[in-house]
Simulated assay, not measured.
Amino acid sequence: MDKFNQLTSVAAPMEIVNVDTDMIIPKQYLKTIKRTGLGKGLFAEMRLNEDGSENPDFVLNKPAYRHAQILVAGDNFGCGSSREHAPWALLDFGIRCVISTSFADIFYNNCFKNGILPIRVTPEQLDLLMENARRGENARLTVDLEAQTISASDGEVVAFDIDAFRKHCLLNGLDDIGLTMEKASDIGEYETRNAAAHPWI
C-alpha cells in the first residue's frame, strides 16, 4: 500500500448527499477481485452516457477536475452495501482523499485499508472547502496527514481529527498484511520454538 503523507491537488466538488457504493462502482463491475482496472467504472452511471461516451456535465469529466485527487463530497458518503470495490475504484481512478461531514462505517474503514484518507469535517468547514473546490484548477487543497490540516489556496486552514493507529498505518503504508509483516521476526521466532517443542507437528 502506498504511503500517505502530504497531498496537494485540485479538489473536485461533489455536491451530492448519500453517495452510496452502487453509485461509486455499479454492480456490473463487481465480477472481478482485482484491485486494478476499476477506475473505468467509477461513478459510471453518472460519469458516462448510455453509449459509453462521457457526460460533460459530470464534475470529474470537466477539464478543471480531470486530474483531481481529492473529492469534497456531501454528507453520508459511501453508504449502502459493503463493497471493497468502492475504494478500489476511487484509488484506481486517482482519488487519494475524500472529505465529507460523515461516512458509512464500512466504507470509512475500507478506505484506510486501501491507502485512501477519508476526512470528517464540520458542516461549516465543508462549506468552506466546497467553495474553494468550486474555483476549479486555480484553487488547490493541501492535505497534510502528519499535521492533520487541510490548507486552502486562499490561506484558510482546517484542522481534522484522525485515530492515531489509522494515521500510523497510512503514514507508513501499512495494510493488514503490512501490519502482520512488521511482526515477521517475532512470528519466525515463535515458529522455531514451536517446531523444537513439538517436532511431531
Rank of each mutant, 00 (worst) to 15 (best):
N114T: 05
G39I: 01
T8Q: 14
A68W: 00
V98I: 14
A89V: 04
R135H: 06
T122L: 08
L42P: 09
T180Y: 05
S82K: 06
S102I: 02
M130L: 07
D127L: 10
H67E: 13
Q125L: 02
T32R: 07
E137T: 13
I99Y: 01
V10Y: 15
G188F: 04
C79D: 12
K40G: 07
N138Y: 05
A152D: 08
D105S: 15
A195D: 14
L145I: 10
H168L: 09
E50C: 07
D51N: 15
N110M: 14
A73M: 02
D51E: 05
T21R: 00
I162Y: 02
K40F: 04
T36S: 04
V121E: 02
D161Y: 03
L179H: 08
T142H: 10
I25R: 01
L117N: 08
I33G: 03
V143C: 02
G155D: 03
L7E: 09
L141H: 07
N49D: 01
R66W: 02
K34V: 05
G188C: 03
D20C: 10
S100F: 00
G136P: 09
V17K: 15
F112Q: 11
F58V: 06
P118H: 03
L60A: 04
L7F: 10
E137N: 13
E156I: 01
D51L: 11
A147R: 15
V121I: 08
G115L: 04
D161N: 12
A104G: 13
G80Y: 00
Y190C: 02
A64G: 11
E50D: 15
L126T: 04
K167F: 00
F43V: 07
A196E: 13
L141Y: 05
W200L: 09
E124F: 01
F58E: 03
A104S: 14
C111V: 10
L145K: 09
L179G: 06
A11N: 04
K167G: 00
P56K: 11
A184H: 13
A164Q: 05
L71N: 06
F112C: 12
Y190R: 13
T8V: 12
E45Y: 01
T122E: 05
D186T: 13
N138R: 14
C111L: 14
G136A: 13
D154S: 13
I16D: 06
V121M: 05
N5C: 07
S100V: 06
G188D: 14
Q6E: 15
D57K: 10
I162G: 01
L141A: 12
F112P: 10
F43R: 11
P87Q: 00
N76K: 11
D2G: 07
S81N: 11
P199V: 03
E15H: 10
K113Y: 03
R35H: 13
K167H: 00
K34R: 14
M46T: 05
A197I: 03
A11Q: 03
H198N: 15
P118Q: 01
